[in-house]
Design a binder for these strands. Structure first.
Lengths: 183, 183
DNA sequence: CAAATAATAGACCGGTCGGTCTATTTGATA
DNA sequence: TATCAAATAGACCGACCGGTCTATTATTTG
């Protein structure tokens, strides 16, 4: 098992993704991670807010990892997009369709804090930049790559929401044909 | 002023859209609407949950109205999309960039309730269907129309999220060039 | 081994949560 | 005007919230 500190952030992350920052109480997080309250405030002196930022950071990095894994093994840009969407759909299913974008529920639902919004904005930019890098690697111009990265990202955010509402991950799997021009 | 019942739902809606179902307390809703607690439970016997459903329904209808207003006065499908996005961006600005999709924060952030998810799913379908109807009206085939409606809807949901994170409504205004093929 | 530090453990606190309940006021109807 | 339901008003409740604090146990380090 990961360190207590990491374990807390991961478990808190799952819960935040399901029911939002204010929808989850500390007691539930603590119980889910099997950790007493003293440990939480030892590792995260600012409590819930710290924990949410850490959880978002971990989730954001995990998504970057998935992006790389998807595009590194791809033959074309569209292949990468397809693999990426399938991996995310699988992730969605594993969590019983109760989970949305790994960071938006945590950070947008949180306190009206500027730090939260800026962190979220930075994470989104990181994702889009990475997607664009891969697009460039497959021969797209910088402008094309940015265009396609943003298009994919925005649609994906929407798909996550629609998938949760419908309880159906296929919405995510259908994305490639929606965002990529017909071959 | 609208009836107490409607006023409550509207004000509650704005607050839910900003901070999610669990992020807003009854006391704040009551204060915002200038209504005592007794009235709330008179008009909405099931309390907060009822109120959220009513708020979502009102917001959903308002969006349909905006869709119609945008496409009815348009010369082409793309014109309609552009007007639609501009209207929504303006709505976003009016509320100081603190507001997201008028229904997702309210219903997805709410109780883990099946009714909430089904209501949300139905609202989304209504929006996409209406968008597709207008697309057909501009000469698109049923398949094209569905494709474009879903593409617009998903990107728009994403744009709302990104706009909130960045505090910038231009993300929404840039949508038409992102989701419509180059003219 | 001794001392210091890190980490765990959980009792406890004031405040706020959503919800209930009784009382009063308002407005329609006879 | 008398009656009755609709609506308003807000005191009150137990539960839970995030957070603080002290005590104890592990772990490192001299």
């Amino acid at each position: 098992m990961a360190s207590t500190r990491t374990e807390l952030a991961i478990k808190a992350g799952y819960l935040f993704q399901q029911r939002g920052y204010h929808g989850v109480g500390l007691s539930e997080i603590l119980e889910s991670a099997g950790v007493p309250k003293g440990s939480l405030y030892h590792h995260y002196p600012n409590g819930k807010a710290d924990l949410a930022l850490a959880a978002a950071e971990i989730a954001a990095t995990e998504v970057l990892r998935i992006i790389d894994a998807s595009f590194d093994e791809a033959a074309t840009y569209r292949d990468g997009v397809t693999t990426y969407c399938y991996k995310l759909a699988k992730y969605f299913d594993i969590h019983e369709g109760k989970i949305g974008c790994p960071v938006s529920a945590t950070l947008l639902g949180g306190p009206d804090n500027a730090v939260f919004r800026e962190t979220l904005s930075a994470i989104y930019s990181r994702w889009m930049d990475r997607l664009a890098e891969h697009a460039v690697r497959f021969g797209q111009s910088a402008a094309q790559a940015d265009h396609n990265a943003r298009r994919l990202f925005l649609s994906l955010e929407g798909s996550w929401t629609l998938a949760r509402a419908r309880g159906d991950s296929n919405v995510i799997r259908e994305l490639p044909s929606l965002v990529c021009e017909a071959t």
